[in-house]
């Protein structure tokens, strides 16, 4: 299976080596469609709904959700992107570096924000994202959509929409990409 380079991003960078495919491309596509329906149902339509994808893994997922929502309801939903590096609580404990520029194109006051990320793990990224959102206005409600919930939460945070619940060991890694979702390990190789 493919090896994928990871930049300095949780947990600590290195090379991802896949062991097992846990979701294929069709599975991801069906999960996106289902979550899109759930978002419409939960918010009784799409009025004031804004998707905010977390950099970098949540952004393609957010765009896919926006496309699905448009196909179902015929409404174009604003999609923002958010990099939470500057809000993390582990600054000074590990390398932290913004990977992309935040782009929230509108004031979020009064909106229904759906935060979108690929993998939910400790919940610390979402904690940082909630802090960051606060600087862009006061949303009426914030919901959370993730493709994979892998457990091991360290904070009282739960997702509203889940593609798949995936039991994992703490030291494993999950990689969501265009062909599906892989479970594997991060290998730190100094010789590389």
């Amino acid at each position: 299976m493919a090896e994928r380079e990871r930049r300095i991003t949780p947990p600590y960078g290195g090379v991802f080596v896949a062991r097992k495919r846990v979701m294929d491309a069709d599975g991801v596509r069906r999960a996106v469609t289902r979550i899109a329906h759930e978002i419409i149902e939960r918010n009784a339509g799409l009025e004031d709904v804004v998707l905010v994808g977390l950099q970098t893994g949540g952004v393609p997922f957010a765009r896919a959700l926006a496309t699905a929502l448009d196909e179902i309801e015929g409404t174009e939903i604003p999609v923002g992107t958010l990099d939470v590096a500057l809000y993390r609580d582990d600054i000074g404990l590990r390398p932290v570096m913004p990977e992309a520029v935040t782009d929230i194109p509108l004031d979020l006051s009064g909106s229904h924000v759906v935060l979108v990320d690929d993998v939910l793990f400790t919940g610390r990224t979402i904690r940082a994202a909630l802090d960051a959102l606060h600087d862009f206005g006061r949303p009426r409600v914030v919901q959370l959509a993730v493709m994979i919930d892998r457990g091991h939460r360290e904070l009282p945070i739960r997702p509203d929409y889940v593609g798949k619940n995936l039991p994992t060991r703490r030291d494993e890694a999950v990689d969501v990409h265009e062909d599906g979702v892989d479970l594997g390990d991060i290998i730190h190789e100094k010789r590389r």
Partner: peptide, 20 residues
Amino acid sequence: DLTDSFVEVSERRIPKVPTL
């Protein structure tokens, strides 16, 4: 490249982050 992120922060309504 890193400066791009801070230009974005400076253009916000509340141009402040809790980083340091």
